[in-house]
Amino acid sequence: TFYNFIMGFQNDNTPFGILAEHVSEDKAFPRLEERHQVIRAYVMSNYTDHQLIETTNRAISLYMANL
């Protein structure tokens, strides 16, 4: 899942690491979701930090390219 992918960046001092920290603390994050459209919609609806949203979009693109 995307959640498992992004958790691989925990403790990294990178934008993906920052995203992983936010996702791990977000109890409502769709952890079992595999459809990138649902993940993107969730982030757009629940996150207000523009940098975090952009990082999510980049992470989703990388995740999709590696499926």
Rank of each mutant, 00 (worst) to 15 (best):
M64D: 04
L52E: 01
P30H: 03
Y3W: 07
S45D: 13
T1Y: 06
R58F: 10
F5C: 02
R58S: 08
D26W: 03
T56S: 09
Y42A: 02
I60G: 00
L19S: 01
V43C: 07
A28Y: 14
L52V: 05
A20H: 03
R58I: 11
N66W: 15
R58A: 11
T56Y: 13
Q37S: 12
T56F: 15
V38L: 09
G17C: 04
D26C: 04
I6D: 00
H22C: 08
F2S: 02
F5K: 00
S61D: 15
F16E: 02
V38A: 11
Y47C: 06
L19Q: 02
A59F: 04
F16P: 02
E25P: 02
S24T: 08
Q51E: 13
Y47D: 01
Q51W: 14
H50G: 10
L52W: 05
N46I: 06
E25D: 09
A28D: 14
F29G: 03
N66L: 15
N46D: 02
T56C: 14
F5R: 00
Y42S: 01
E25N: 15
Y63V: 02
M7Y: 03
N11F: 12
A65I: 11
G17S: 08
V43E: 00
T14D: 05
Q51F: 15
R35L: 06
A41M: 11
L62E: 07
V43A: 06
E25L: 15
T1P: 08
P30R: 03
A65C: 11
H36T: 15
R35Y: 06
H36I: 15
D12I: 08
R35N: 15
E33A: 08
N57A: 09
N13M: 08
Y42T: 02
E54H: 09
N46S: 09
N46T: 12
L67T: 12
Q51Y: 12
D49K: 05
H36A: 15
P15F: 07
A20C: 03
H22P: 02
I6W: 04
R35P: 04
N46C: 07
H22N: 05
I39C: 02
E34D: 13
T14G: 15
G17W: 05
R58Y: 09
L32C: 13
N57W: 11
D49E: 07
T14I: 03
Q10L: 15
E33R: 03
R35Q: 09
L19T: 00
K27E: 11
S24Y: 13
E54M: 10
Y63K: 01
A20Q: 04
N13R: 10
D12A: 10
H22R: 11
A20E: 02
P30G: 01
I6C: 02
Y47N: 01
I39Y: 02
I6A: 01
V43Q: 00
A65N: 10
D12P: 06
D26T: 06
Q51C: 11
M44S: 08
A20L: 04
F2R: 01
E21S: 14
N4G: 11
R31P: 02
N4K: 11
A65L: 13
A59E: 03
I53L: 10
A28S: 14
G17M: 05
L52T: 03
D49T: 06
R31M: 07
E33Q: 04
L32M: 13
M7W: 03
S61P: 05
V38K: 08
K27Y: 08
Q51V: 13
H50M: 13
Q51A: 13
S61W: 11
E33W: 03
E25K: 15
F5P: 00
H22M: 09
Q37Y: 13
N11H: 13
S61T: 12
F9V: 02
Q51S: 13
I6H: 01
I53F: 05
Q10V: 14
E34N: 14
V38F: 09
D12S: 14
A20N: 01
H50C: 11
R40I: 15
E25S: 14
A28I: 06
I53V: 09
M64E: 09
N66D: 10
D12W: 08
L19Y: 02
N46K: 08
D12K: 13
D12M: 13
S45Q: 14
E25W: 10
S45Y: 08
H50K: 13
N4H: 11
Y63F: 12
E25Y: 10
K27I: 12
F2Q: 00
L52R: 01
A65Q: 12
Q10P: 04
T56L: 14
N46E: 06
Y3V: 02
N46L: 05
E54A: 10
V38Q: 08
L52I: 10
R31G: 03
I39G: 00
A20T: 03
F2L: 05
E25A: 15
F2N: 00
L67D: 08
T55K: 02
T14V: 03
Q10H: 12
Q51K: 13
L19M: 04
Y3P: 00
N11G: 15
A20S: 05
T56P: 01
T48A: 10
H36P: 15
H36R: 05
P30L: 05
F29S: 06
S24N: 12
I39H: 01
Y42I: 03
I18N: 08
D26H: 05
G17Q: 06
S45T: 12
V43Y: 03
M7H: 01
S24K: 15
N4T: 12
A65G: 09
T14H: 06
V23L: 11
S24A: 13
E33S: 06
G8P: 03
I60C: 05
A20F: 06
H50P: 15
A41I: 09
H22V: 14
T48L: 11
D49F: 08
E21D: 13
L52G: 01
L32K: 10
T1D: 05
I39M: 03
L32T: 13
F29V: 01
V38R: 07
P30I: 06
G8H: 11
E34Q: 15
